[in-house]
Design a protein around this nucleic acid. Structure first.
Lengths: 337, 337
DNA sequence: CCCAAATTTGGGACGGCTCCCAAGTGCCTT
DNA sequence: AAGGCACTTGGGAGCCGTCCCAAATTTGGG
C-alpha cells in the first residue's frame, strides 16, 4: 500500500559506501570527503530523498515541533496571533501544530493529549472560557515540556505568560467614555473565571472610582462569550429603569454584536449610547459606526509567546523561568464613542 | 536536558514481565491475561505513560496526520474552512498540521517540504496566487501520498478537488446587477493563473452575453490580490471616460476595500456604483452598506476536502480516484447592489 | 495421569537514522 | 623504513515500539 521510501541505505548501496558516510554527508558532518559528499547529495536529490522524522525524533527525543492551542479561530484575533507565533517558530526552526479547542474544556484536554502524543517540544496555549482544572497541563511540567500561556492565562501555574495591559487598557477606555460626558457606564464582561476579565473589570472599576462615579451593580454583567447571548444582556441594559449611556464590552465581537442590536432599536450610537470594545479586530474599523476600541498588539503577542517558549525549550528544566510579559495597549477612538 | 520518558520497558521492568506483554496489554491485543493487562494499564496510568509516536510511526510508516496548507488566514475564509477540515479529520482519527504559505510560492514549497518531513499521510492544499509550477506537489504523487486541492486548484494534476460553482455564482451575481439596471459592469479579477478567476470571469462574460451587453475590455482588470493595490484599480475604474455603474469583485476582501475607497470619493453605493463580492465573509454583513455577495459553503468545502483525502488514503495507490466535487453557491442580496 | 490444544509470555528482528569507536588510507617526519 | 598523524570510512549499538515465532504454562479430555 505504501511505496518504499528512499532511505540512506538505498543511497549507500547505490554508491557502494556505508550508511554512516551517507548520514554524515547528509547532515553536513565535516569529516566526509568532498567528492563523496557531492555524490551523496546529488543522488539524494535525484531520488527525492527525505529524511525520516520518525527515526530522527526517536534518536533525538525531540520533534522540532511546538503546538499551539487556541479556543477558536472564527474571528480574526487568534488567526492573527498564530501568524505571529508561526513566524517566530519558523525562524527558530520549529514547526507549528495548530489546534482549536472550540471553547470546550473537553476538547482542550483531548487536544493536549494529541500534542503530547505528537511529542511536541513545547506548547503555547490560550485556555477555553470553561477551563478551571489544569491537571492536563500540569502533565507537561512533570514531563519537562515547556508551556507558555498567552492572552487567557492560568494563574495557578508558574510558567511564562504573555498578556496585555488589560487593566490599564480598560481604565483608559472607560476614562475616555467619561471624558465624553458619559456617566452611566455599563460593562458587559466575560466569565469571571478568566483572569483577563478580572483585570479588565478592575480597570473599569478604577476609572469609575477615580472620577467619583459610584459603581452600580446593575451595570455589570458577566456572560459566557457565546455571541448569540449578547442579545439577552443588551436588552437587559436597554430595559433598565435608568438606561446606561455607554457600554464597555469585553471584546470586539461582543461590541460589534451590541452595535448591531442597538442599531435595530433605533437608538443612536454614540449619542444615546456609546459602545467601546477591546482588541481592535480587523472588522472594527469597517462597521458603521466604526468601533472605538483598545488595540492590543496581536501578532506581537504571538511572536512573544513563541519566543518565550523557544527560550524555555533551550533551557535545562532546572533553569526554567516564568516571566510574565505585559504588552502595551492603545486606545483607538472611532465613531462609536 | 530532556527528562527520561516512560517507556514500555520501564513498565515491564517494574512488573517483572517482558516488553512484548506490556505492548500487547497496551494495544489491547486479546492474548494477554486479564490480571496482567490490568496491572499494566494501572501502572501506565500512574506513570503517565505516553506512547512514543516516533517509534510507532517508524514501524507503521504512517503518522495519522494530514497536513493543510492555505495561502493566508488573516481573513475569515481559510480559518473557517480549516474548522471544517479539522472536524472531519478528527472524526477519522487524524491530526491536522496547519500551515500558511503567505501567498508566497517559495514559502509554499518550503511548507510542502515540512509536511513531507513530518510524514503526513495526506495533504490538503489551496495554492498561492503565485504558484505556476507544481513539481513540489507532484512529489507527493510519486511517493504515493494523496493530495487534495480545494478552492484554488491545480488543473494539470489529476487528483481529487473541491471547488464551488464559480462560474454559475459569478453568472448569477452579474445577472443580478443587470436586473438592477446596471449596464457598464466592471470586473476586478485576480491573477489569470488561478483557475478560480478564470471560472468567475467566464460567468461574468456569459451573463453579459446572455443579456446582449457587449464586453468592454476596459472594464476587465486582473490584479494580484494584494489588498492595498485595490486602490489603483478602483481609481482606474472611476476615472474612465465612461465610468462603470457596477463592479463585480473577485472576492469579499476586494469588494470591501472597494466600498471603503468609493465611499471616500463621495459616490453613492449602490446608486452611482454597485458593488458585489464573492464568498460571504463574516464581515460582509456588517459593513455599511452591507455587501451583496455570492455565498460559498466554506466549512462544507473543508469537510468535503478532508473526506476526499481520507478516502484516498484508505485506497491503494492503484485505485486512486480523482473526483472534482463542485459545491453550490448562493447569491446573497444586500445593500451594496 | 498423560498428551494435545489453548492460553499466555518471552525473545528478537526490524524500522531509519545518529553517533561513538575502531580501522583503513595516505603522507610527512625523523 | 617505521612510526605518527590527519583524514575518511565502516561497523554496530541504540532510540521505542510492533509483531512473528517459539517457549512456557495451564487446561481438559480420554
Amino acid at each position: 500500500m505504501k511505496k518504499h521510501q528512499t532511505t540512506i541505505f538505498d543511497i549507500a548501496k547505490e554508491l557502494g559506501i556505508s550508511k554512516s558516510t551517507v548520514s554524515r554527508a547528509l547532515t553536513g558532518h565535516p569529516s566526509v570527503h568532498k567528492q563523496t559528499r557531492e555524490k551523496v547529495l546529488q543522488l539524494a536529490n535525484d531520488l527525492e530523498y527525505q529524511r525520516n522524522m520518525f527515526s530522527i525524533g526517536l534518536m533525538r527525543k525531540a520533534s522540532n515541533t511546538v503546538g499551539i492551542i487556541v479556543p477558536e479561530f472564527s474571528r480574526s484575533f487568534f488567526p492573527q496571533l498564530i501568524i505571529g507565533a508561526q513566524e517566530k517558530a519558523k525562524e527558530a526552526g520549529y514547526n507549528l501544530i495548530i489546534s482549536q479547542s472550540d471553547e470546550s474544556y473537553e476538547t482542550e484536554v483531548s487536544n493536549v493529549k494529541v500534542m503530547l502524543a505528537h511529542q511536541v517540544d513545547g506548547l503555547l496555549i490560550s485556555i477555553t472560557r470553561e477551563t478551571n482544572n489544569f491537571e492536563h497541563l500540569k502533565i507537561f511540567q512533570r514531563k519537562g515540556i515547556p508551556i507558555v500561556f498567552f492572552n487567557r492565562v492560568c494563574d495557578e501555574m508558574i510558567v511564562p505568560k504573555v498578556i496585555v495591559e488589560d487593566q490599564e487598557g480598560a481604565f483608559t477606555a472607560v476614562e475616555h467614555l467619561i471624558s465624553r460626558g458619559k456617566r452611566r457606564i455599563a460593562h458587559l464582561s466575560g466569565p469571571e473565571s478568566l483572569s483577563i476579565c478580572k483585570r479588565r473589570k478592575a480597570g473599569y472599576m478604577a476609572a469609575l472610582k477615580k472620577h467619583q462615579i459610584s459603581f452600580d451593580e446593575d451595570l455589570l454583567v458577566h456572560y459566557d462569550l457565546t455571541i448569540n447571548k449578547v442579545k439577552i444582556y443588551v436588552n437587559y441594559f436597554l430595559n433598565l429603569k435608568e438606561r446606561p449611556d455607554a457600554i464597555f464590552c469585553i471584546n470586539d465581537p461582543t461590541a460589534i454584536e451590541a452595535i448591531r442590536l442597538i442599531k435595530e432599536t433605533g437608538l443612536r450610537i454614540p449619542e444615546d449610547i456609546a459602545i467601546i470594545g477591546f482588541s481592535n479586530d480587523f472588522v472594527s474599523s469597517l462597521i458603521e459606526p466604526s468601533l472605538t476600541t483598545v488595540e492590543q498588539p496581536i501578532k506581537e503577542m504571538g511572536r512573544t509567546a513563541a519566543q518565550l517558549l523557544i527560550d524555555q525549550i533551550a533551557r535545562d528544566v532546572a533553569d526554567w523561568k516564568a516571566p510574565t510579559v505585559v504588552l502595551k495597549t492603545q486606545l483607538i477612538v472611532r465613531n462609536s464613542s
